[in-house]
Amino acid sequence: MNLKRLSGIKKTAAYIFLFIGAAAFVYPFIWMLMASLAPEKDIASFALWPTSIGLGSYVQVFEKIPVLRAFLNSMIVSLTVTFFVVVFSSMTGFALTHYEFKGRDAVFYIIIFTMSLPFQLTLIPQYILMVKLGWTDSYLALTVPYFISGLGIIIFRQYFKTIPRDLFDAARIDGCSDLKILFSILLPNAKPAIITVAILTFMGVWNDVLWPIIVIRNENLMTLPQLITLFAVGGKAESQLGVKLASAVLLAVPVVVAYSFFQKYFITSMASSGMKE
């Protein structure tokens, strides 16, 4: 399988295959964008280019639901969770790699065990917990339950293993406290791990819908995907396709922008979510 042996015909066939694939992935998004800009009567009939374009559907979305507020909520929630996941996961990963202590293996196995628990098992009791703590309809319900990520711990643990012990010991001799070693020496050297954990966490929280739908009922506290979901399912869109699609575009744009800038990081990070085993 190397370049020299690939004949021209095979090469062309491969490219055609790849292009068809690319069209299948991109065309729906382009159609959605154009439909959100098209006048309502056009949506049912155009294939690529509507008769005219305008922002009418977007104006309606902004009039009907608090999109900006929801965007802000999503940012607050996702960033808070990402911050804590990085801090707590690195702390735990650090403890698991650089210390010998009683129960270390037990903790590691508990982490692995927890990761293999499907959420279906804990969904109901977790909701009840939120109710009993009085956290429903607050940012607490959206953030605190996510503060720990087993995968995050595993990623940091693996990364810290590659950092030579000497670095750690030298810092200790210099009289650094352990926390200081972690946060000012190890973490700055663990950027790839941080990026991976951060992107995975951020994307996971940003895109989640089920949990917000369950714990948030106050429109002012809804996350963007939740708000858009309820908008699309409920009656507020008044079955206007353009408005629905415009709301979907608004939900897609922040992620697509981030993705186009950090595409490589996204791909490697999200692919590493497969290293669960």
Partner: peptide, 9 residues
Amino acid sequence: LPVVVSGVV
């Protein structure tokens, strides 16, 4: 691309 975009979209 579709992997990163929200399932709702």
